[in-house]
Design a protein around this nucleic acid. Structure first.
Lengths: 335, 335
DNA sequence: CTGAAAGCGCTTACAG
DNA sequence: CTGAAAGCGCTTACAG
């Protein structure tokens, strides 16, 4: 270890309390003393040891973000919002990754029990009721992003509605046989999007045909990959009675689907979901999720909660917004 | 705070030393005592408080990754490698973001001085000699990724060579007027790639024409964006004497460039740099960087360093690999 | 404005 | 196999 508060105090001819005050920006230190301490500290490369501060204060001035290892574009954008917001605050951010597996809840519990942060932002962590109630007992300052539970503050997007709108957009243009490209079966967002797709069809008086729902073969990242979309679209195009439009459960899959269509020389209208940065450059129609805003807002909520223990639980649910580009527009598609 | 070691010890009718031993997997505890402590602890939701452990042990069992806020695909892939590697180790990972600005070195210094981690992985942090030597004094366990400095273990890619190979690939196909799309002028990788581009031209007996180097207008994320590439390519295509090929300093810019060509109905051969996941699905030729391996290897080096203080400094420099797809292939491009 | 002292929750020789 | 005690590096009433 390098210099400690004792070293600085000795050299400055003062007490450790004074050194501590200087670094805690207390106002009850004479300018003279302050400058002296600061100079010596700078010279020695001294800075209070975070672990010791944390223990003494019982506060770490740290916000922990917990996110699945499947780091994707969604997470990157949410994180950008969090980072921009925290830049204004007197907190540090640190990010922990958890693996999506059976012990997901244990991993989250472990991170919270160790108790390094003053507040936690959980992104895309989906647990069951019982698991959430165990978590609830561990800490009061937890905000959920991309997940909903009555006991926690949360910021999420209505995937069901988004898929409903996307599918309706296709229906309204007169398409008959609308295929869907989905992801891993037990992925929460994937399920929600199938639900919205099905409802839209039903509300339009159509029958939901499960043979029109494709999922590819490769499931890395829960199937939200270009490859998965490529495979699924290949299957779609190989059908005897070819679908005349397609809704993909993510832009990243839609991108693979676009390539599959290109390789086969067949194009059908397609919609994605997410509206990633690059989608505009693919001419890909999509459902826009306010990812950046979600991150920003979630942190804001969390900080409020940390201030005000007893505030009512707050839930914000954004509605995805239809963004129409060339990929789903009829006149561009029909020859 | 919730239960402490004292609570558990009291309830178990033992001393805190024993409780501590149980949680530290020491072998000198009777099975009976161990089980009892574990049961009580589980019930109380107890786990040693990381800050206290860190202070007492003077070790945190933590590796910190420091990365610019400009989180991009490169970083995502590197991180994936780090994460997969650390899964086998008895360490936790946490990620801190720093802003790219004049006080970048200060931010890094601050994070290291607070001293929460046992080792640091710095990704894409570019500093000058003087700044690096200050950092060097702060901690012995620091590994650089995507940066080279004699004093630190490092894992990087030869951007100059990569750009050289990319440009040569275009030259070898007989293109005459090869434009380059670059990024922010003072971005290190951008500079290196211009260098490689220029050298390749010179070695082929060509003259480097600065009016063929375009950089777009928008510089968010240092100019490594779809938008920037779109703008730059629009300029390229508007030239009176149009270039007959183009090297873009990143795939993300190449993607925007592809769109610009599409919008104008003009196509010229193009190469990117990075070989991102989606590039295969765009048919984009590129220079492959082993991002995942870089992350994995860097962590390995760091752990070795933590074991063996005095080992020689180690540098690994990967050579990017040419990946040819349809975007740069002649017969597909010339009508 | 400054200092002495208790306390934060743990780990780890040391002694038994 | 177990316990008493010192120590990790700080913060923060309390007293002056």
């Amino acid at each position: 270890m390098s210099a400690t508060i004792y070293d600085i105090a000795r050299e400055a001819g003062g007490s450790i309390a004074t050194v501590s005050r200087v670094f805690n920006k207390a106002n009850n230190v004479s300018p003279k003393t302050r400058d002296k301490v600061l100079a010596i500290a700078h010279n020695a490369g001294y800075h209070p040891y975070a672990m010791a501060q944390g223990l003494a204060r019982k506060k770490s001035k740290l916000i922990t973000v917990i996110v699945p290892v499947i780091s994707n574009h969604f997470f990157m954008e949410v994180l950008a919002g969090i980072q921009d917001k925290i830049a204004d605050e007197d907190y540090d951010l640190n990010i922990y990754n958890v693996r999506i597996s059976d012990d997901l809840d244990q991993q989250v519990e472990y991170l919270i029990k160790r108790g390094v942060a003053d507040g936690y932002l959980l992104i895309s962590i989906h647990l069951n009721d019982q698991q959430w109630s165990r978590i609830k007992k561990l800490h009061n300052n937890i905000t959920l992003i991309d997940e909903y539970h009555t006991d926690f503050d949360s910021v999420s997007v209505d995937s069901v509605e988004g898929a409903y709108l996307a599918t309706s957009h296709l229906i309204n243009q007169g398409y008959d046989r609308i295929a869907m490209i989905t992801a891993l079966e037990n992925s929460k967002p994937a399920q929600d999007r199938i639900k919205g797709y099905s409802r839209a069809l039903q509300d339009a008086g159509r029958i939901v045909d499960n043979s029109l729902i494709f999922s590819g073969v490769h499931y890395s990242r829960d199937g939200f990959t270009e490859r998965n979309g490529y495979e699924a679209m290949s299957q779609v195009l190989d059908m005897e009675v070819r679908p005349d439009a397609c809704f993909a459960s993510s832009d990243i899959q839609a991108m693979g689907a676009l390539k599959a269509m290109n390789d086969k020389g067949i194009t059908i209208p397609i919609m994605g979901f997410d509206d990633l940065r690059f989608s505009e450059f693919l001419g890909l129609s999509s459902m826009k999720q306010p990812m950046y805003d979600m991150g920003w807002l979630a942190l804001e909520k969390l900080l409020e909660r940390m201030d005000e223990d007893s505030a009512d639980v707050s839930h914000t649910i954004f509605s995805p917004e239809l963004v129409v580009r060339s990929s789903s527009v009829t006149d561009k598609v029909t020859v």
